[in-house]
Amino acid sequence: MNCLTLWPIILQVKQRNVLGIYLLSLSISDLFYVLTIPLWILYYYNGHHWKLSRAACFFSGFVFYSNVYISIFLLCCISTDRYLAVVYPFESQGFRRPGKAVQVSLLIFLATFALHLAIFLGSTSQDRGHDEDNRTCFEHIPLIQSVAIGNYLRFTAGFLVPLLILTWSYQRIVKGVRKSLTLGREQKAKVKLISISVIIIFVICFTPYHIILLFRTIYFTVADCSCDFEEKVHLAFNIALALTSLNSAVDPILYVLVSNGVKKDLRNAFTSFSRTLFAKGRAKGSPISLTKTTALISGT
């Protein structure tokens, strides 16, 4: 789905659409994560034993956790962009430019990479004494000090602050839409849908993981041994961790289908493809019904 929607989003970027730039950044991050899914499947199939190289483990973990927080920060950017577009449509024109959106996206990528590189290097140095025949991949049970410090930082800066930003932006957007005299009924509905979709993605995909992460870390900090607690929350924590992966699946569906411009580009791309098939079919003597194909694509 990410590959399918990438081209229409690129078309939006070519039209200097700020939202398109954030969507493209989100898709790029998701695509990198998708590349690591076979490695994680193999890991869980082997009973949480990492049988590949440590470099492969580092790459998979780095991409996975970076994708989580890049997605969170980009969701904040999308929500903030909608807020500025609705509440301050003229005043924000100087800030809401493609160049600024590119700079913000690059800053998010670089800052997230730098943070996780520091955390991972610290945890890797403490993992060197572990049994190489029964090793895990970034599953520290119990936690280690460097990971615990990183968890507090990720919960605060990577979850709590973005949650406050999203909630505040949504409230302001709803008020701005109600007062707007320039937006039509359909446009108001679309803006509200984008805003509430961001909240839904955030709550479902990221809240369970960060809540359990916080409790794990607090318990590790105050208790002499957190092994019993770790065993009790192990299954719930893994389920919550899996929910974060849903973000990569629902991002393109929600944002591409909500945006009328992207839907139009996607329909045009499929129509062009169906015409090519139709032409080839006629050349081979096997005509294809273009009308029927287009109707199926457009949902009419």
Rank of each mutant, 00 (worst) to 15 (best):
D81I: 04
N247K: 04
R282Y: 11
V104H: 02
L213D: 15
F278V: 14
L35Y: 12
I28Q: 06
T244S: 04
A55W: 01
H210L: 07
L164C: 14
V104T: 13
T300Y: 07
L121T: 03
S71E: 00
A114C: 14
P38Q: 11
G158N: 07
A236Y: 06
G261Q: 12
A55N: 01
D228W: 08
V87Q: 10
R16S: 13
H140A: 07
I10H: 09
E132Y: 02
T112I: 12
G20E: 05
I165S: 06
N67Y: 00
H210E: 15
V174N: 12
R135L: 09
Y43V: 01
S105P: 09
N17Y: 00
W7A: 15
G158L: 08
R216L: 08
I199V: 12
V174H: 13
V258P: 05
F109E: 12
I9F: 01
T112L: 04
L257R: 14
A236R: 04
F109A: 15
F206I: 10
P8K: 07
P98L: 08
Q103V: 10
F215G: 03
Q15A: 15
L243K: 04
I141F: 06
F273N: 11
L277T: 08
H140F: 13
F113P: 05
L4K: 13
A279R: 15
I41P: 01
I72L: 01
R178C: 02
T293A: 13
I108F: 03
V174F: 11
T221V: 04
G150H: 07
N151A: 12
I41F: 05
I10K: 10
F220V: 13
T156G: 14
K190T: 14
I288D: 01
A269Q: 12
S60D: 04
G299W: 08
V63H: 00
S29G: 10
L214H: 09
P89N: 06
S197K: 03
A56W: 02
C205Q: 06
R216E: 08
L266D: 08
H116P: 02
T80A: 09
P38H: 07
G281F: 12
C57F: 02
K263T: 10
Q187A: 04
T136H: 02
L42G: 07
K100N: 15
S53C: 06
P98H: 05
L75R: 02
F220D: 15
S289C: 14
